[in-house]
C-alpha cells in the first residue's frame, strides 16, 4: 500500500481560497491539467507539487495527484513525462 512520494514540476499560483494553490501541470501527451491543492502538497518556491509515484518507465511516469484535475476526463492518476518528476 505504501507508495513512493515524488514531486511533479508545475506552475503554481494563488488559489481561489486560503490554504490552497492553483496548480497547472503537463501530461505526457502535452495537454495541460490543473487543480487546486492544499498548501501541504505544494512547494511554491520551486514550483513543485507532491505526488505519489505509481509506476515509472524510462520516459513516462504514472502519478497520483493530490486532488482531482478540473479538466473533463482527467482522473487523479495521470501519465506524465519522467523528466518532470523529481524523486
Amino acid at each position: 500500500m505504501a507508495l513512493r512520494e515524488g514531486w511533479l514540476k508545475c506552475q503554481v499560483s494563488e488559489g481561489m481560497l486560503p490554504e490552497e494553490y492553483t496548480v497547472e501541470c503537463n501530461s505526457s501527451d502535452g495537454n495541460t491539467f490543473s487543480f487546486f491543492a492544499s498548501q501541504e502538497h505544494v512547494d511554491p518556491a520551486h514550483e513543485l507539487v507532491k505526488v505519489n509515484i505509481m509506476d515509472r518507465q524510462s520516459d513516462s511516469c504514472l502519478v497520483y495527484v493530490p486532488s482531482a484535475p478540473l479538466e473533463g476526463g482527467v482522473s487523479r492518476t495521470v501519465k506524465v513525462s519522467s523528466k518532470d518528476v523529481v524523486g
Partner: peptide, 26 residues
C-alpha cells in the same frame, strides 16, 4: 473567514475539455 466570489455575471461558458481550468476559475 474567506469567500471566493464570482467577479460578475459574465457571458462565458465553462468548457472542461480545455486546459488551464483552475487558473481560469481563479
Amino acid at each position: 473567514d474567506t469567500l471566493s466570489i464570482p467577479i460578475k455575471d459574465q457571458p462565458f461558458s465553462y468548457d472542461l475539455r480545455k486546459g488551464g481550468i483552475a487558473s481560469f476559475l481563479k
